[in-house]
Amino acid sequence: MGSVGTPRRDQAADDSAAEPSVGVATRLGRLGWVRIAVSLALLAAVLWPLVAQKDSFPFSNYPMFSFPRDRDSTVNVAIGFGADGQPVTLSPESIAGSDQVIHAARAVGDAVRSDAAPALCEEIARRVAAGSTPAASIEIVTETFDVVDWFDGDTEPDQRVVHARCEVRR
């Protein structure tokens, strides 16, 4: 690979600068119809989710954080409890086997909605048992908070529903 120092204008640059200004049609013609078609197709694909409202990859309608949300918010969560009954925060890896919190949230939410909370609870208990998290039991719960007040110190949930409880067998 050539040196990446201060670049010098080469012949192509000189030719480019010396050439009289040309029209858009000529310039598009130089690009060729394949490049123009590829460009239009790609830009159409990027904008298509505006119409299709579909979140996919690599084209998306980017729905994250776009919907209205109240301060009263419901969170499905898996919580560990130590032998003394004190709550222990579980990691996303323990909950969903991935380091992404969004996967953990999705896994718990799906389990609650599909009445599969007991199965997920056992699954989490197995992961916890294989790791070093000091939890003796697991609960899958739905809690409702005023999310802004939570950050002002009011961390008690307004509502709490326990969907499943299971022991960690080491």
């Binding site: 954080f65 969170v75 898996a78 996303p92 919190v101 953990a104």
Partner: peptide, 15 residues
């Protein structure tokens, strides 16, 4: 609310 919810979820899910 979105920012608060996202942060709360992270707090509760160990992130």
């Amino acid at each position: 609310s979105q920012i608060a919810h996202d942060n709360l979820r992270k707090e509760l899910l160990g992130d």
